[in-house]
Amino acid sequence: MLTFTASDAKNNFGTLTDTALTQPVSITRRGRVILEVMTPQAKEALIQERIKELVFGQFVTDAIEADKEYVATGLHTNLSEMQAWADSLGTANPLSMPACHK
């Protein structure tokens, strides 16, 4: 990421905006980043990447907890039960979540 000081950003605003069209640009004041300039597309890509990281992290946490529960109780559902339930979500007559069984 290219970096401009605040005074360089002010004095070279055209260069800053031209650069920000191709890559994110940091603006610093007294050695600290105070702003980052990027295109809306780059911002959206960054947001989507963070969402994926959060969702995956939650998936891993949920999977670990589900495995602990299975080890402790022996209760489970199978793929076809979960798929039928997931497919029914958003329909006029959604199924109840499958009950765990041995």
Rank of each mutant, 00 (worst) to 15 (best):
T61R: 03
T3P: 08
S80W: 05
V33C: 01
G74C: 08
P24W: 07
T17P: 00
S7Y: 03
V55N: 00
G31T: 09
G90W: 06
Y70T: 14
L75C: 01
R32N: 15
P94L: 05
A6D: 13
T19G: 08
E69T: 15
D67K: 03
T73Y: 01
S7L: 13
T28C: 06
V37P: 02
T15Q: 04
E49N: 11
A66Q: 05
L2P: 07
E36H: 02
N78D: 12
A42Q: 03
D87W: 06
H101I: 10
N12L: 13
E53R: 07
G14A: 09
V25G: 00
Y70H: 15
A9K: 01
I34W: 04
T28S: 08
L79V: 14
S88G: 13
R29I: 11
K43S: 06
T28P: 04
K102T: 11
D67E: 08
A86Q: 05
R30I: 07
M1V: 15
T77S: 04
A20Y: 05
S26I: 08
E69I: 15
Q83P: 03
L75K: 09
E65Q: 08
K68I: 14
R30C: 06
A86V: 15
T3Y: 00
G57L: 12
S7H: 03
L46Q: 07
P94W: 05
F56H: 12
A6L: 13
Q41S: 13
V55F: 04
F59K: 06
C100F: 09
L21R: 01
A84C: 06
T3E: 06
I34S: 03
H101Y: 10
L16Q: 06
I64G: 02
I27G: 01
T73K: 00
N93K: 08
T17M: 10
S96D: 11
T39E: 02
T91S: 10
A92L: 09
R30W: 03
K43R: 12
N78F: 09
L54S: 07
M1I: 12
P40Q: 09
Q48V: 15
T17E: 05
A99L: 14
T91M: 07
A84K: 14
D8F: 07
Q83K: 04
E49Y: 04
G14T: 13
A66D: 13
M97A: 07
G57P: 14
F56E: 12
T77H: 00
H76L: 08
H101P: 09
R32W: 15
N11G: 11
Q58F: 15
A63Y: 09
F13M: 11
A72F: 07
D18H: 06
A86K: 04
W85C: 05
D67S: 01
T15K: 03
A42N: 02
H101Q: 10
D62N: 08
M82D: 12
K52S: 14
A63M: 11
K68H: 10
A99G: 04
R29N: 12
A72S: 14
T22M: 03
E36A: 02
Q48L: 12
T73V: 07
G57Y: 08
M97Y: 12
E65C: 03
C100G: 10
